[in-house]
Structure formats: structure tokens, C-alpha cells
């Protein structure tokens, strides 16, 4: 083993380090893209009609949106520039309030008694953007046989 290692020079080690760096580049690009781009939207729906659709990046500070209905039901939703949660509601089960904060695309808060749905989406492809390394294995199987 030592005999083999002696063959490699210092600059070989340097080249190999650079190569390891290159191989992690896609991760860096992916996370940079996800943190900066990929605009998230809050979509608030009641009785299957969209009441609000707000881009999270447009929100400066924390703000509250109250959904009132004629029969005295209300839902108060806290929205900040990076997360959303149901602040208060006068529904009887309080599941929506207890479901906590949501921040990534695809997550939802549902208030069934009031038929209110708060959802975070991305405009372009929605859930398709999720990393799915397993499904790309189908392509990679082919690589072995080239």
C-alpha cells in the first residue's frame, strides 16, 4: 500500500482535493437556489375559493390576516416573511391552531370546521421540485451499461 501511495505526488493530492470540491458543487448550487430563488406563496382558501395569494418575499414584517364569515366564525393567520401559522380560531376542535407553523412548499394548515385551508406553494412546478434521487436511479441504471 505504501508503495502505491508513494507514486502520488503532492500536486496529485491537490488535484484530488479539487475534484472532491467539484463533486459537491451541485449541492452548493442547489441549496443556493433554494434559499434565494424558488418563490413561495401563501394561498388561503375558504369553501374552495381562493381568498388570498401572497408571495412570502413581498411581506416585510409579521402581519395578520383574519378570515371572517357571516355566521361569526373567524380564523386569524399570522404571516411573516418566512413562515405561516394559525394564530387563533373559534372553531371547536382547534386542530388548525395546534398544527403549528409551516414554511416549506407543500405544507398545509387545515381548519375543517370552517373549511379554511392555508397552503404554501411555489409557482412553477410545485411538488415536482422535490429532490427525488431514487427516481433518477432509473436513468443511472443505464449509465452502467454504456
Amino acid at each position: 500500500m505504501k508503495r502505491f501511495l508513494k507514486l502520488a505526488t503532492i500536486s496529485d493530492m491537490f488535484v484530488i482535493l479539487v475534484l472532491i470540491g467539484i463533486s459537491f458543487l451541485p449541492f452548493a448550487v442547489f441549496y443556493a437556489e433554494q434559499s434565494s430563488g424558488g418563490e413561495r406563496f401563501v394561498v388561503i382558501t375558504k369553501d374552495q375559493t381562493v381568498l388570498h395569494e401572497i408571495a412570502l418575499s413581498d411581506i416585510d414584517g409579521p402581519q395578520q390576516i383574519t378570515i371572517d364569515s357571516d355566521d361569526g366564525h373567524y380564523n386569524t393567520i399570522d404571516i411573516s416573511s418566512d413562515e405561516v401559522h394559525m394564530h387563533d380560531a373559534n372553531c371547536n376542535d382547534q386542530v388548525c391552531v395546534r398544527s403549528g407553523t409551516i414554511d416549506s412548499p407543500g405544507e398545509t394548515i387545515v381548519c375543517l370546521p370552517h373549511k379554511v385551508i392555508v397552503e404554501i406553494t411555489t409557482k412553477d412546478t410545485g411538488a415536482d421540485q422535490e429532490i427525488d434521487i431514487i427516481s433518477s436511479f432509473i436513468f443511472l441504471k443505464e449509465l452502467h451499461y454504456e
Binding site: F24, P26, F30, I131, S136, F139, L143
Partner: peptide
């Protein structure tokens, strides 16, 4: 090429395993 064919960048995330 694979990510062009599959039309998604996420295939590139497989690079670290392959290249190590």
C-alpha cells in the same frame, strides 16, 4: 446529459456519490 434528458437538475445531486 442525464439531467438534460430527465429535464431536472436534481439528477446532478447524485454526483458526489458517483465521483467519490
Amino acid at each position: 446529459v442525464a439531467s438534460l434528458v430527465a429535464n431536472t437538475f436534481s439528477v446532478m445531486l447524485y454526483l458526489p456519490i458517483l465521483s467519490l
